[in-house]
């Protein structure tokens, strides 16, 4: 346990040192404030629009950005140390593969979490001070959003570890990370829509909502919509209205999306032989 914290501490410090944490926080702050105050500019209105529309737009932006940020943060976590030669050294230290893996995960997950707390928390406080809003509901909604955003970040850190442990070159890991991002964030929804339209309703209506569970970004969006009680789902999420939106279940699905990739990377790590 202690070893995990030592590794986590180093990863976290690295994140602070190379300004990842700061950069992500700033991006989050700009996104939230921008959407809160200028989100309805197209409608010809400036100023804080509404909590619901702010969070819905924030969620659609986060669905794109958080996976990308998490993948970029974590893709070279192992392959970088492999290329550097430090992984070889660490493997001769009194440190199990699981400890190293979990230590790195805890450290990098803490970076994303801290960035979400600051990056979404500060704008929430600013909104409460500057605008005439219901403080309690804004703070509740934003703190729930912080939890979900962090969770989405964790999922993609864990996925990045699978990539990082499967390849032996940093550049390959970067390419794969980009492909994974593209598949989950852009391709999946399009393909699913296309299939649903093409099948003309022949796919069993009870199964369809659960297909969304295959994609953690969709689970994230449904969760955000559920939490803020949004009336209208958009795009492919409409199919989720038919029963797959129990908050607890979805939360568990997200947790599974963290745990399974971690287990998978642990398995790859154990099989790996460092022969250079």
């Amino acid at each position: 346990m202690n070893k995990i914290l030592i590794v986590a501490q180093k990863e976290f410090r690295d994140g602070l040192r190379n300004r990842w944490t700061g950069a992500i926080t700033v991006i989050f702050i700009l996104m939230s404030l921008g959407l809160a105050y200028f989100g309805s500019a197209t409608a010809g209105v400036l100023g804080f629009s509404s909590l619901e529309s702010t969070l819905v737009s924030l969620a659609s932006l986060c669905v794109m950005l958080i996976p990308l940020i998490a993948l970029m943060l974590a893709y070279n976590c192992f392959v970088g140390e492999l290329e550097q030669g430090t992984l070889l050294l660490l493997m001769t230290y009194p440190l199990s593969n699981a400890q190293l893996l979990l230590g790195k995960f805890v450290g990098q997950a803490a970076i994303i979490t801290l960035a979400s707390v600051l990056g979404f928390g500060l704008p929430a406080i600013i909104i409460c001070i500057v605008s005439d809003v219901d403080v309690v509901s804004v703070l509740t909604a934003f703190s729930q959003f912080i939890v979900l955003a962090s969770l989405l970040g964790w999922v993609f850190i864990a996925i990045a570890y699978i990539i990082s442990l499967s390849v032996t070159e940093k550049s390959k890991a970067a390419g794969l990370a980009l492909i994974v991002w593209f598949l989950f964030v852009l391709v999946f929804d399009l393909v699913l829509m296309a299939i649903l339209v093409a099948s003309e309703g022949n796919i069993s209506a009870t199964i369809v909502p659960f297909i969304l569970w295959i994609n953690p970004t969709d689970v994230f969006r449904i969760l955000v919509y559920t939490i803020i009680g949004a009336e209208s789902y958009s795009g492919v999420l409409q199919i989720a209205e038919h029963g797959a939106d129990g908050t607890v279940y979805l939360f568990l699905v997200m947790m599974l999306w963290v745990i399974l990739p971690l287990l998978c990377s642990w398995w790859i790590f154990n099989k790996k032989e460092l022969s250079e």
């Binding site: 030669g85 070889l88 050294l89 001769t92 230290y93 009194p94 440190l95 199990s96 400890q99």
Partner: peptide
Amino acid sequence: HNYRTQFGYLPENV
């Protein structure tokens, strides 16, 4: 890994 506390290793091109 528990016993590796007593190992010392210097890799080539550390």
